[in-house]
Amino acid sequence: MESLYRELILDHYRHPHAKGLAESFDGESFQVNPMCGDQVRLRVTVTPASSADDATLADVTWDGGGCSISQASTSVMSDLVRGLDLAHVEEVAGVFARLMHSRGLGLGNDADEDVLGDAIAFEGVAQYPARVKCALLGWMALKDALAKAVAGDRSPARIPEGFA
């Protein structure tokens, strides 16, 4: 279990970073796993706004509730991607998804591991297939919010009935 609940994960769960939604945003997403109630609402600002090519992810904030893996993963992700240009964000997200689908075999590549920074702590999650979705929830919200920002869609995310 230590491989799953690394101290870094528990730290982020107890003291999440970037939690608390910013007032203004360029894109917002709400992601929920209806099976267990894990939820993440996430906002991004992008500079220069609505320019796909050389834009930078200026800020990420989020709010949510759920299991330690989903909440800590969103917290670690926020630190990792803030300030990166969007192409770079996509690369990191791709490496993280690959790690999650590695069935615990890891990435087998130091360069990729470096890209992930603290997010490599979630390596153990990949051994528990039922938890992979939890770890990816915040990343899905990020991808969705960025897509909206790039498309100039500043509409608030739709929140299904029964979720706050």
């Binding site: 279990m1 799953l4 609940y5 209806p34 099976m35 267990c36 109630g37 894990d38 759920g66 299991c67 330690s68 893996i69 528990y128 039922a130 938890r131 939890c134 029964g162």
Partner: peptide, 29 residues
């Protein structure tokens, strides 16, 4: 503590329980 986390903690001790909504979402709500 989220049920997933509780279930994982118990599983590590060999204790098998069910976590989630047990196919009864309205009961939980």
């Amino acid at each position: 503590v989220h049920p997933h986390d509780a279930g994982q903690y118990l599983d590590d001790l060999g204790i098998a329980v069910r976590v989630g909504h047990h196919c009864a979402q309205p009961v939980h709500r």
